[in-house]
Amino acid sequence: MSQSENEPLEKSAVSTKVMDFVVAVMFFVLGAVVMWDSTRLGAKWGSDGPEAGYFPFYIGTILCAAAIVNAVRAFLGKDIKAPSFVSVSALKMVFSVLLPTIFYVLLIDGVGPIPGLGMYVPSVIFIAAFMVWLGKYKWLMTLTVSISVVVVFFLMFEIWFKVPLPKGPLEAALGLN
């Protein structure tokens, strides 16, 4: 990948070797879980062909075996293109979008006893936040874009295609649900 050229200059957040190893271990765990559940279902070749767990069992087995090879290769530092998995600055960029996105989905869904706000209001907030924070747009522009985009979505999904999306207190107050 092209970004690898200037990466050594920046501080690395996590090395590719470690990440590669961690992912391989996760694959191994997943494979083991699949194997375990398959034996519960019956993983043998029954009288009339394979049982429910037959294929998943072998999928799990192959997954585990391949994961071990990958873990060893990671440990030995094979197929590593860049020593750094991600630099601190790049990771910051990624999180600057990933965290708001997680927050956005939390707003839609609600947390525990707090009910969600539905799909539309969080979408306005999300787009607006991006535009103000990352794009440094003025408020007027921001609100115009974010609200009109979401209104278009509303018309398209709720009115034209009749696909109900989650709605919150605002829509209820407006009588739109």
Partner: peptide
């Protein structure tokens, strides 16, 4: 500009994931 398109794409992705089965679990 990216700062407009990116959030709109993310919103479309979230809506898209939701509409497949009308399930928030799918968005997560």
């Amino acid at each position: 500009p990216f700062s407009i398109v990116a959030p709109v794409i993310l919103v479309i992705c979230a809506i898209g994931a939701y509409t497949v089965h009308s399930s928030m679990f799918d968005v997560w």
